[in-house]
């Protein structure tokens, strides 16, 4: 029988945030930090399929909602990479994470429990994520007949939240994204797409897709990696 998901929550800053769990009874529990913003939506199905595969192999995992994202009732414009990092730390403690795995921009906030072994796939720089969202906003404005510049948006973002590609981002978030790099952690296993994990850059695709072979490759790799360290 295919493993069934469990829907649970963690507490952060006075709110309950949603967590999707597979294999809660397993001794190894991998906290999955998803990609950020739109890339999260595009990767979610592929990630959840990987979590199913992990549970079939006997390794538990849980996928957290970052405050202000997905099912969260918290406002996104009040969040920053710093609050997300703290939220990851809170979820790791409350769910007894033994390992942390992140994808793309998740690597910018996955060090809320920096002492645990970390696994990163295709980590992204904050500046790249921000640039794509700014370009999307400028392209949308252009189609609506408005001329918007990157410099103008960055200036406006110093004082008040701005809307970028459907996300209301506050001053702290924009400022942090502009310079964020994947953080140092004690024990890091870095995976490159195409070299270590065969698959496609689903997070860049305008049309969300899935990739069962990629989910399977991630499940196999995370299972073997988590057995080899920590926990």
């Amino acid at each position: 029988m295919s493993p069934r998901p469990e829907y649970r929550t963690y507490q952060f800053a006075g709110h309950e945030e949603h967590v999707l769990c597979f294999g809660a009874e397993a001794s190894r529990q991998i906290l999955i930090v998803p990609p950020l913003f739109d890339e999260m939506n595009r990767s979610r199905r592929m990630l959840v399929q990987a979590m199913r595969g992990l549970a079939e192999r006997g390794t538990g995992s849980f996928l957290v909602d970052l405050p202000g994202c997905n099912e969260s009732l918290t406002s996104l414009e009040k969040q920053s990479l710093s609050t997300w990092r703290e939220a990851v730390g809170a979820a790791a403690t409350q769910f007894g994470a033994t390992h942390i795995a992140s994808l793309r921009g998740g690597a910018l906030v996955d060090n809320g429990a920096a002492n645990l072994p970390h696994w990163r796939l295709a980590p992204a720089k904050g500046s790249s994520l921000l640039k794509t969202m700014i370009r999307t906003r400028i392209a949308g404005d252009k189609e609506a007949g408005k001329a918007t510049s990157e410099a103008g948006l960055m200036e406006a973002a110093k004082a008040a939240p701005i809307e970028l590609a459907g996300n209301m981002l506050g001053p702290a978030m924009v400022a942090e994204l502009a310079s964020a790099e994947p953080a140092e952690v004690a024990q890091l296993t870095l995976r490159a797409l195409g070299q270590d994990i065969a698959g496609s850059t689903l997070w860049l695709r305008a049309e969300p897709q899935d990739d069962p072979a990629m989910s399977d490759a991630i499940a196999t790799d995370l299972h073997e990696w988590s057995a080899s360290c920590g926990g």
Partner: peptide, 17 residues
Amino acid sequence: PELDSMAVAGLLTEMED
């Protein structure tokens, strides 16, 4: 059809990287 003005944003950033 895959190349619309929104997809161009991602394409340019990925080209840079």
